[in-house]
Design a protein around this nucleic acid. Sequence first.
DNA 1: GATGGCCTGATTGTCGGACAATCATACGAT
DNA 2: ATCGTATGATTGTCCGACAATCAGGCCATC
Lengths: 242, 242
Amino acid sequence: MSVEFDQILLVPGYRKVAAAITARILSRELREGDRLPSETELARQFGVNRSTVREALRELESGGLLERRPGSKLMTVSRPQHRAIAKDVGRALALHDVTFFEVWEALTQLEPPMAEIAARNRTTADLESLVAACQRFADENAETEKAVHHAAEFFRCVGRATHNQVLGLAQEPLLGLLEPSLRVMIDKVPQARSRIAVAERRIHEAIGKRETEAARTWMARHIRDFRKGYELADIEFDRRVG
Amino acid sequence: MSVEFDQILLVPGYRKVAAAITARILSRELREGDRLPSETELARQFGVNRSTVREALRELESGGLLERRPGSKLMTVSRPQHRAIAKDVGRALALHDVTFFEVWEALTQLEPPMAEIAARNRTTADLESLVAACQRFADENAETEKAVHHAAEFFRCVGRATHNQVLGLAQEPLLGLLEPSLRVMIDKVPQARSRIAVAERRIHEAIGKRETEAARTWMARHIRDFRKGYELADIEFDRRVG
DNA sequence: GATGGCCTGATTGTCGGACAATCATACGAT
DNA sequence: ATCGTATGATTGTCCGACAATCAGGCCATC
């Protein structure tokens, strides 16, 4: 007869403290903008040393659950912003040796439906920011850095226009990986800038007129163009990003 | 004439240390499995106190870049695992008051293409684990908890079968949110279990025969069924998840 | 030779106390 | 009302300390 014991795990104090505060935030007892007690006070309440509290705070801080308003020492509860989350995800993907192809394939699947949904759900304000983003790309695409940034920003506007936070967030890490990919391609392909500008215009026009099918189609074409760009720039498709 | 100064930001030491180590990991100087020097040694190298190093380590640890093999004190470099990342993302979405509908809509857009890609790229091993997951759901769905878990696990198998890490990771937070949604629905809808079982079988059969269109279609139906389930269970669609 | 016991040094988790720099706020001077 | 100043609170960093645990070597036992 074989006796087996469960692994006994001893959780360090700083993680217990972090878990306790996290639970309070998730249960909404602590709401966004609420100020956390001082470190000394927390140490007193939890009955641990201030150093232990500080280690716990670093965990929450890097998870985005706490933040400090610029130029202030007080820590306030915050909802993790999409960009911050995306940074972590993008980093993870880069470390997993994600290839250009994988990023492109994901964009292929994700973006056209998003354009369609955006065409259905966009508000007037969405449309305005979409047009503005398109305009910014058209106006300031001389510097590689600005061009890349504005191209990604256009996608973000589409994402917001879907009014679906899940889709918006799912897209974000992709854009984080698209930027470096685009950076190495855009200057090698002379016609890239104009093609992007045209595609963006078609897309925002379709979204503006609520033409769902047209929006999807032009977005699909837009993404296909990226692939062509990579081929023209002679970038191997199984090269890893980042 | 207006003079404007950039905001001067003083970065605390623990964040500089964290950034320095992170950079080493992202540049692959530190590779997965490498053991980090001891805290005392790091403190010596960076010329800061051990407490400062520890706060930095907590940041990296919660970001998944460092981990401790169970029952060991040594910290080793690690690539953030998908599940860990997804936990953060799911938490963020929950705090942003994501609704059932948003999760469902995202699944609607994401899963059918994934099934199609899986049908194209799956290996024999993928198919085996897919069949096994399907079987596990069919066999052990009496307990709510197990049923929910196995249902999500089936999606994960499909995700792995796509051989696209980006898609697999994008899907993960959705599953994290699907589980609680499914948990409140599955026991209220008598026919839910059998419908899920049937859909899973159709999907894995299509993937097995590499019938891309059939895989997509059945997956789409599978997701549509979830929506019907919510309606039957009388769950308001704009209720927030979590 | 394999196993287990024992010792030693290294490492982590936690603690207490300390201090400079900065922030928040109230008070007073101009 | 605006600007300085004083005061207390808070954070960032440091130092030193110690128990608990881990890693590895040594040795006796079987």
